[in-house]
Structure formats: C-alpha cells, structure tokens
Amino acid sequence: MKEAPLTCLDLWFKAGSSNEWPGEEGIAHFLEHMVFKGSNNNDAGEFDRKIEALGGSSNAATGFDDVHFHVLVPPKVVAPALDLLLDLVLQPALLPSAYAMEREVVLEEIAQQNDQPDEKAFQKLLSTCWCDHSYGRPILGYKKSLKQSTPEQMRSFHRRLYTAENCCLSIAGALPQNIDKLIEKSLLSQLEKSSKPDLATKTSTNIPFQKLRQEFEVPRLESSRLLMAWPIAPAKEQKIIMGADIATSLLAEGRCSRLVKHLREDLQIVETIDMDVTSLEKGGLILLEACCREENLDRVEEEIHKILGESINSFPKKHELDRACHLVRNGHCFNLEATSQVAALAGAQTLWERPQGLLEPLEYIDYWSGSKLKDEIFCQLKPELSCTLIAKPSEVES
C-alpha cells in the first residue's frame, strides 16, 4: 500500500518448547515474556514505548519448534527499530525482581489454560498420542518446573539456543536501500555460533506415536468430544503436507465436505466437526474433532469410520477434489495479505533451511490427483491407525 508503507522485522530462533531440557519445561515461553522486561540498554517497558513512538507495534510467539519476535514500523524508521529489536532479544537483562513478578503472570496463564475444558481435552490428546516426546508437553510448561527455575537457568537456555546457527532475520515490506549495511553494523554481526550445538534442534522423524482408543472425563466440558489423531510427515515434506491439507479440506471444510454434510447437515448428530493439519519440524498430526451430545457418541464414531472407509476405498469425485484444491490455494494466498504474514512465512521457511518463493508451495497442489490422495493420504487415515480419545463431561472436579 503506497499510501501507508510498512516494514516488518521478524527475528526467529530455533528455541521453542521442544528444545527444553528436563527441568526447563516452560522456560522457552517464559523467556519470551522476560525479553520484554528490560535489556542491557532499555528498562522494562521502554522498548514498547520507543517502538510506539516510531509509529510501530510489536509482538512475539513461542511454538514447539521455534520462537519469533517482530516489529511492524514505517520504513523510514527501520534502522532504530532494528537496533531496538536486537537489543531486546539478544541482550535481555533477566533481573531477579522482574523474573519473580513475571513468573506469577506465566503461572496464571497456566492456571487459566488448565481451567479450560476444551484445552484439557486437546492437551490430553497430544500427551497420549506422543507419549513422552516433548511435543506432548504444553508449551506453557509445568508449574513445578517454573517455580524451581532461576534467572541463571534462563540465561543458560538463552546462551545455548539464541545463537547464529539457530537464527534468522526476515524482513518484508518496504525495504530501505541501505538494509544490508544496517544489518552489518547491528548486533547480528556479533552473534556467535554455539561451541556446543544443541542436539534438541536437530530434526528427527523418530517420534513415538501411540495407537489406541481411550475414554476419559473432563469436568465442566459442555459437549462430548471425539478426538482422533494420525501421524504425518515432518514439515520439510511439503508435498505430503499439501496433500494432507487437501484431504482434510475435502473431508471437513465447509458444508459440502463429506463429514460436515453427512454428520452435521444430513444426520444432525454433531454440533461441529473439524479436521486440521498440525505441521511441525519433527513430525506432525492430522487431527479430527467432533462435538456432540453424549448419547450420540457411538453413532458419531460409527459414521466417521464409515466416511473414512469410503475415502480409503474409492477415489474422490472431480468436483470434490477441485473444490478442496481451490480452498487450499485460497487459504495460502489469503495468509500472505499482510506484511507480517509474509515475513513470518519467509522467516520460518528460511530458519528451517527450505527457502523458496512465497507461492512456490502451491506447485505441489498439481501433484495431487484423486488416485494419489487415495493411495498416499487417505490410506493413512484408517481408524485403527489413530489415537482416538472420547472425552465426556464430568460433574466432579478432578
């Protein structure tokens, strides 16, 4: 937008919750909080005030695999914004007084999450299907680990993972002509490689997956849930991920999709039914969630198995496949409308060593014919290959 140009500076690190060592559970997300509580050159709150004075905004997010911090500013103030961002992230003060106060904030976040019945059911699915793997832990971590943590422990985590080989700076939008020189003179040029690379940052597809069917009760759950998960290839296998996106769109996106039409529109035995793909660096999941009345659970499960069986044993019709591909293509493009979205995609792709054009992933759509979807994706969605959890409401607090 020429009338309102913006530049997004997005700083990424391979320092998500899956990189935590035993006893560090939750420290990756806690560090994201602490970064904003002051640095070597700025007191707590000063970064936000200065970025806002430049006409910008900031945000951050911690995931299983990585963490990123971004600022969105007018292009004429990229230089001071870059200095502020790098000082904030690379030189956090981690003062004991701020540490103790912010820990209470994070502990309250955990308490709020644990108080959400839907969140408890979903976390139960992750911890069950992924067994003891770090992906099965909540990103927010555990109260016990956080209460026992110290600023020095966090400083050690920062030194171990906020290093040159784990870092990527992504810039999108209106770019200053001297951007290369600005980076050369910045703190990034002083960022050193770790003398002891962290083994947790190396990708591996050897993630345990538990196939089972289990029922459990969740206090105050409004509707019963049928949750199903299947393992999927790691994020680097982008062709497979694209196929999974097409398959889940065909099955459960919109009123015309197979599961929604059959269970919600025709039989009217579910309140909602959704499918999604969780794509992660060490291996992801295809997830299905159906919400319904408890007395309909058996029928819902039976009909889901029926639709999945039909998908496994027959090709999708051409109009179904065309519609699903259209939805996936539109979704990818719509997720690139904002400068921050462009920076985030480019940053994540580059961080994990698969840089490519923003629209290049769309080329994988053409690979997926009906027969290939049937043979390579739907065949993996057999009920007996899933981790299936049945969540029922309970009147008794656990």
Rank of each mutant, 00 (worst) to 15 (best):
E353N: 11
A98Y: 04
C129T: 09
K181T: 06
Q214G: 04
G370F: 00
T205W: 08
W352I: 03
R49F: 07
S195L: 03
S189F: 08
I312M: 14
H70N: 13
V77T: 13
V71Y: 13
K236E: 09
H332Y: 07
H305N: 15
P151N: 07
A235Q: 11
E109N: 05
E237R: 09
N41V: 01
L72G: 08
M275T: 11
L94H: 07
N41I: 01
C131V: 10
N41L: 05
N114F: 08
P361R: 01
G56D: 05
L175P: 09
P197Y: 03
A338C: 04
R329H: 08
L321H: 08
K317L: 15
Q349V: 00
R49H: 13
V71R: 14
C333W: 04
I365F: 03
L287Y: 14
D87V: 03
C333V: 02
Q214M: 10
A61W: 01
M154V: 15
L389Q: 06
K196L: 04
P138T: 10
G56Y: 07
Q112M: 13
P361W: 00
T272D: 13
L285Q: 14
E109G: 05
A98S: 13
H29L: 06
L351K: 01
K236S: 12
D322V: 08
F378W: 05
V277N: 11
A60G: 12
V35T: 09
L336S: 04
E24P: 00
E222M: 09
G23N: 05
R49N: 11
S224H: 08
S58Y: 10
N335E: 03
G23I: 00
I241A: 10
F47I: 02
Q190S: 15
A200D: 00
A290N: 14
A121Y: 07
N206W: 01
E24W: 10
I377R: 01
L288C: 15
E363L: 01
L336R: 04
D118G: 09
E108W: 05
S194M: 01
G26R: 04
R329D: 06
E320I: 10
L351Q: 00
D266R: 11
E102R: 07
T272K: 10
L125G: 08
Q177T: 10
K147D: 12
H70Y: 15
A247K: 04
K317T: 11
K306C: 13
I273G: 13
E32G: 06
Q349R: 14
L191N: 05
I232D: 00
S311Q: 12
R323H: 09
C167W: 02
D276W: 06
L297F: 12
F334A: 06
R264N: 11
I207V: 06
I179A: 01
K318Y: 11
C8W: 01
W12R: 00
L6I: 02
M275Y: 05
A343M: 02
D118C: 04
H262V: 00
A343Q: 02
Q356E: 00
E301H: 13
C291Q: 15
Y135Q: 12
S39E: 02
K236Q: 14
T339G: 05
Q356C: 06
Y142T: 12
